[in-house]
Design a protein around this nucleic acid. Sequence first.
DNA 1: AATTTTTCTTGATCTAGATCAATTTTTGAT
DNA 2: ATCAAAAATTGATCTAGATCAAGAAAAATT
Lengths: 194, 194
Amino acid sequence: MEALLHLKQKVNELSEMTGEEWLDFSSRWKPWNVSRGNYIIQTGQVEKYFYFVHDGVLRAFLLNNGADISVGFTYKGDFTGAYDSFLEQQAADWSIQATTPAALLRIGYTDLMAMFDRYKSVERWGRLFNARALIGMARRQVEVRSFSAEERFDRLFEQSPHIFQLVSQKHLASYVGMTPETFSRMRKQRLEKE
Amino acid sequence: MEALLHLKQKVNELSEMTGEEWLDFSSRWKPWNVSRGNYIIQTGQVEKYFYFVHDGVLRAFLLNNGADISVGFTYKGDFTGAYDSFLEQQAADWSIQATTPAALLRIGYTDLMAMFDRYKSVERWGRLFNARALIGMARRQVEVRSFSAEERFDRLFEQSPHIFQLVSQKHLASYVGMTPETFSRMRKQRLEKE
DNA sequence: AATTTTTCTTGATCTAGATCAATTTTTGAT
DNA sequence: ATCAAAAATTGATCTAGATCAAGAAAAATT
């Protein structure tokens, strides 16, 4: 599918736009391609764009005293960016990297703000998008805080088996909050049980 | 200060409303008082209201296999509620309790949705409120994931010394992610250093 | 003011998961 | 297809913080 059509479909899930609104809104998104391993934003930079993932997988991660901690993954059909940096136009405290070649669309800060000002439908989309992101993050929080490493591993396996094909084990390990060694050992245990 | 005025001031920080809009919007918030220890929402219920804290302190927490884990506190001038439950009108997976007597204002789901539909200014307030909440939660996530128990303790002490007066140690302990025993020991260490 | 309940403290012990280290396997680049 | 680099595995050891337990202090209830 063509990228803009893909975007339209996803935006429509949250808010209805008139043909005219969509024409204006969609004209402000530009294609942006990233090759495997490259960054769309790095810690310390100010995020100037908000991204739609037409294809590929992106990984958001923290770099604290050397340790690389994955905090989330974005797949095709979803949006990404360093929200806090973007919304407040301040230095980002995390980075986002393509873990596969990725075809993105992106919209600049000024353009998006203009769209919020101009159209109620865009404002609504923004509100609902944020609400969803908030809910997702709250769920992640529950996940990380109320389960043991073992439980988190099993829940990842149950809930997102596909993720094992898309993301390396060491990134998954930091995502669920354990070392790659522990992750590997748990994986082995599970495989042996079969 | 009167509660509605307090609310107005806080809403205005994010979005400007006309006098007429405010009249309609504000008329839908009703006073709600909670005594110490009581709940505004409990796990499993569907959240029907969104709350403004005019006075008091509320605590949001998870109950997982018996363990009580605090995930956040709300002070005067801020909003609270089980967002995910409220927004999707599904069973909440956490509870919210007053840790002091609290004077709240609350608005019902249908009323708030009507306001979103009717006024762009309210839609904007909703978008920005969600954005802020999202940013806050992202920061919390960074906090919990990139620091050791010791570092988290010290950062809490530095960044929110006032919280020690408002919330019991055992609740703070689960908030920063350790047992009350560990929390107590760290506190002692710090006091002895003086 | 007295008593019950809850919270906090302190010590002793235990354990899930981290760390360190040395292969082996997989992946991507040429 | 070959080679270099990165990722994963496996074993041995270590440790931050949990758990268990029991008394002291504080706060709520009568």
